[in-house]
Simulated scan of single mutants.
Amino acid sequence: MRNLIQFIYRFRAFLVFLILEAASIYLLVQNNSYQNAAFYNSANTYVGKVLEMQSNVTDYFRLITVNESLVKENAHLKEALFRERKIAGDTLLTRIDSVMTLRDTLNRPLPVPFTFTGAKVINNSVRRTNNYFTLNIGSLQGVQPGMGVVAPEGVAGRVKAVSANYATVTSLLHSQTLISGKLTRDGTFGTVKWESGDDAHTATLNYIPLHVKVFKGDTVVSSGYNALFPEGIMIGKVLSVKKEADKSFFTIKVRLAVDFTKLGFVYVVKNLDQAERDSLELPLLKKGEEDE
């Protein structure tokens, strides 16, 4: 303590100068619009660089986790690919045309109506009534409003707005988001909706009739009835099943497969057949609304 007091006493003039200089700069910035704008613009630039460096460091230490997730996902994709090829091969063997050789038949490419574009989540919210997240790709990368978005673990949301290099996505954690899902046990389909009172890890599966057998732990996946997502994309697992006296449907809570509090990398889904499908379905929907 004595050394500190001696240091302050020895450099008292210089320290007073620094205090007065800081006070002068503060008053100059606060009372002059030009200096105020210049200061905050410079501050934002440096703060942005610091945050970018922090993000790069954080991303570096997350590489192990990210790589493990990618390896697991690639393993599942390979398994699904070989399984589908086997099913397709067995089907073709039983229906092969007499004019076409077996080799030519099996070498024909199978139609793939969906494509996936990888993206990084650069902003995300989970605590609001209507949550969104932002991607680092946009129209220049082929993203369009209305496309589905999936994480490695399952369904994540739907593209709402797009700029040249960015896209805003309506999260599954949004009061207006409805996902057509089904139980893998028997194929019964309903609608998955996040209620604003729920936490970021649970949602509700609606419109499952009372005669259906539903158990805790049952898997819920995308039904394929909506053109946004392929059939079978994971949504979550049944957390609880409740039968209420005044309702003709179960109240089913689902634990979501995607942890939105840790959302990092996602895929934007493009349905190559969506335009053709919409050309048939939209007129019928409009006609139905007019008839009502």
Score class of each variant (00 low, 15 high):
L4C: 10
F7A: 08
F7L: 09
Y9K: 12
R12Q: 11
A23Q: 09
Q30K: 11
A38V: 14
F39H: 00
A43N: 07
G48H: 10
V50H: 04
L51V: 13
N56L: 12
V57D: 07
T58L: 12
L63K: 10
I64S: 15
S69V: 09
S69C: 03
E73P: 00
H76W: 07
E79G: 00
L81N: 10
F82S: 02
F82I: 05
R83T: 06
E84D: 14
R85S: 02
D90R: 04
T94W: 09
D97C: 05
D97S: 10
T105W: 05
R108L: 12
F116T: 04
L135D: 03
Q141I: 01
Q141G: 03
V149T: 02
A151D: 08
G157L: 01
R158F: 04
N165I: 01
Y166C: 00
T170S: 09
L172Y: 12
H174V: 01
S175E: 15
Q176T: 11
T177R: 04
I179R: 00
G190I: 01
V192E: 12
K193A: 14
H201V: 05
H201E: 15
T202N: 15
Y207Q: 10
I208S: 03
P209I: 13
V212E: 09
F215C: 00
S222L: 04
G224N: 07
L228T: 04
L228D: 06
E231D: 15
V238E: 01
D246W: 02
K247C: 01
F249M: 02
T251H: 12
T251R: 12
I252D: 05
K253L: 14
K253G: 13
D259E: 14
L263T: 05
G264K: 14
V268H: 02
E276W: 07
E281H: 05
L285I: 03
L285N: 07
E292Q: 03
